[in-house]
């Protein structure tokens, strides 16, 4: 338990380029924490839930604050792109409604002004709103080390609570989301105690409705397991069929069975089970 609102002392490293940051990551390994927006890290350091001799602060690296969209490349979000930037971006709003909704509902304006979208993923909190949307959208995280870059799909990115596939000598530099296809729609919903809050449950859905039936579905649910998870059994039920109320009820009951929520100060396991099902149903309906 913290006894201070003053951070513990650390050695601050301020790389001016990604390659410098990568060198630092290689040099200091698990003794170093990476700070982009810092809204999670500073609190963790203060509470003592993270300790770090070194902090690699990314803030002065030029060229990492971008949102680029290309028909071939899809959406690329730089490591220093704040959540506010995402909310203010029309491409995101138009093409990736699930992600835009997640960003818009996420935290308070002044947190969104400094917190980064990628940072929300790197925190690997099961309740991360951006994480949830990005998982449903089939995004990937670009990691860079001295050995070059590698792209890790979100599906393989979350290892456990607070733990990601990033190796200690790697720096996360970008989020990559596949380009939007005609007929692919998405939505995001979350449940909180008050509007400005961490999610007690969040749900993101992406459906390919380009044909007469649902070609493909991705359903991500957060705060119901140690990591944000996909409900693949429910996705399978949607594939190749027409969506109707009976199917939605069936999906809802599958969702309740597939998740492993816990009781905590924000909600109960029982409630999360009930409401995840409702939210998935509503999120799918919102796509139709």
């Amino acid at each position: 338990m913290s006894n201070s609102r003053i951070l513990p002392e650390f050695e601050l490293l301020v790389p001016q380029s990604v390659s410098e940051a990568v060198d630092m990551a290689a040099q200091y390994g698990d003794k170093a924490a990476v700070l982009a927006g810092g809204t999670d890290l500073l609190i963790m350091l203060q509470k003592g839930s993270a300790t770090s001799e070194y902090v690699i602060a990314m803030g002065e690296i030029e060229g990492l604050d971008y949102i680029k969209y290309g028909k071939a490349d899809g959406l690329r979000i730089g490591a220093l792109t704040t959540i506010t930037r995402m909310v203010d971006n029309n491409t995101v709003k138009k093409n990736y409604p699930a992600l835009w909704q997640a960003c818009k509902q996420h935290s308070a304006p002044q947190i969104r002004n400094i917190a980064t979208t990628l940072g929300n993923v790197m925190r690997a909190s099961p309740s991360g709103d951006c994480s949830c949307a990005l998982l449903a959208l089939g995004a990937a995280v670009m990691l860079e080390s001295k050995n070059g870059r590698r792209e890790v799909p979100m599906d393989d990115f979350f290892i456990n609570y607070g733990k990601t596939a990033r190796k200690v000598d790697e720096i996360a530099v970008e989020i990559v989301i596949p380009p939007v296809q005609n007929g692919v729609v998405s939505s995001f919903m979350r449940m909180t105690r008050t509007n400005f809050d961490l999610s007690k449950v969040n749900v993101a859905v992406q459906l390919d409705l380009s044909g007469k039936t649902c070609n493909e579905a991705r359903i991500a649910v957060g705060a119901v397991a140690p990591t944000t998870i996909r409900i693949k059994k429910a996705e399978a039920l949607l594939k190749g069929v027409k969506i109707n109320d009976a199917l939605l009820e069936k999906i809802a009951s599958v969702v309740s069975k597939e998740i492993k929520p816990i009781d905590d100060v924000r909600s109960t396991a029982e409630y999360r089970r009930d409401v995840s099902a409702v939210l998935v149903r509503r999120a799918i309906k919102a796509c139709l």
């Binding site: 810092g38 500073l42 506010t84 002044q110 002004n113």
Partner: peptide, 15 residues
């Protein structure tokens, strides 16, 4: 300019 919580940024990064 934008609104920021002054408790959520390191002064050293405000150069």
């Amino acid at each position: 300019r934008k609104a920021v919580d002054a408790c959520m940024v390191l002064a050293a990064m405000m150069d």
